[in-house]
């Protein structure tokens, strides 16, 4: 039996849904995807409240001037870090993203790229599955330290040190 590279087996391996798997991306590719997008959106979940993660997240948001949705209770942490965001449950924002006619967070039209960080793995995986199936108008990118096979593009599984280096590369150019 061939053992696949652990870095690109979904973090929770049983979320594998079918033949289509996310593209493994480097920070450089992730950056390029954001730059190329016309209306990107950053979705920040509660696992990003951890101080070190929050600092990187804030820098990425500022670097790319991203509109932000905060899921669960992340709104307060972002607000205290000086980031304006709109609070939505992860299932609510996913539902809005599915609708091609939704005007988006800034009222400028539906987003074409959604970047996820800090959402709880398995519910994020479900949200990504929903977008994979029912939102062909949107690309999804996850920049967590866990590989998300239901995204279009994802960072690999890695430890904190490597992850923080990945995140830093995104805003340090």
């Amino acid at each position: 039996m061939i053992v696949l590279n652990d870095r690109i087996i979904p973090w929770q391996p049983t979320v594998i849904a079918g033949p289509k798997q996310a593209m493994l991306v480097t920070p450089e590719t992730a950056t390029m995807m954001i730059k190329k997008a016309r209306r990107p959106l950053m979705v920040v979940g509660p696992l990003a409240k951890r101080q070190e993660v929050l600092e990187h997240t804030v820098k990425i948001i500022r670097h790319f001037d991203l509109p932000v949705v905060a899921t669960a209770d992340t709104y307060r942490a972002l607000s205290e870090a000086g980031i304006e965001s709109e609070p939505h449950g992860i299932v609510e924002i996913t539902n809005l993203l599915k609708d091609p006619s939704w005007e988006g967070i800034r009222g400028e039209g539906q987003h074409d790229l959604v970047i996820f960080i800090g959402c709880i793995y398995y519910i994020a995986s479900q949200g990504l599955s929903s977008l994979k199936h029912f939102a062909p108008h949107i690309k999804t990118l996850t920049i967590c330290k866990t590989f998300h096979s239901n995204a279009d593009a994802s960072f690999p599984n890695m430890d904190d040190d490597e992850w923080f280096r990945y995140l830093e590369k995104m805003y340090a150019e």
């Binding site: 849904a17 079918g18 033949p19 289509k20 299932v91 996913t94 539902n95 599915k98 479900q126 949200g127 599955s129 929903s130 199936h133 029912f134």
Partner: peptide, 19 residues
């Protein structure tokens, strides 16, 4: 609001079908 757990249907011998 649907969030498929699996991309396939495995219920009959036509399949598996990817959906």
């Amino acid at each position: 609001f649907y969030a498929p757990f699996c991309d396939m249907c495995c219920l009959c011998t036509y399949g598996k079908c990817e959906l």
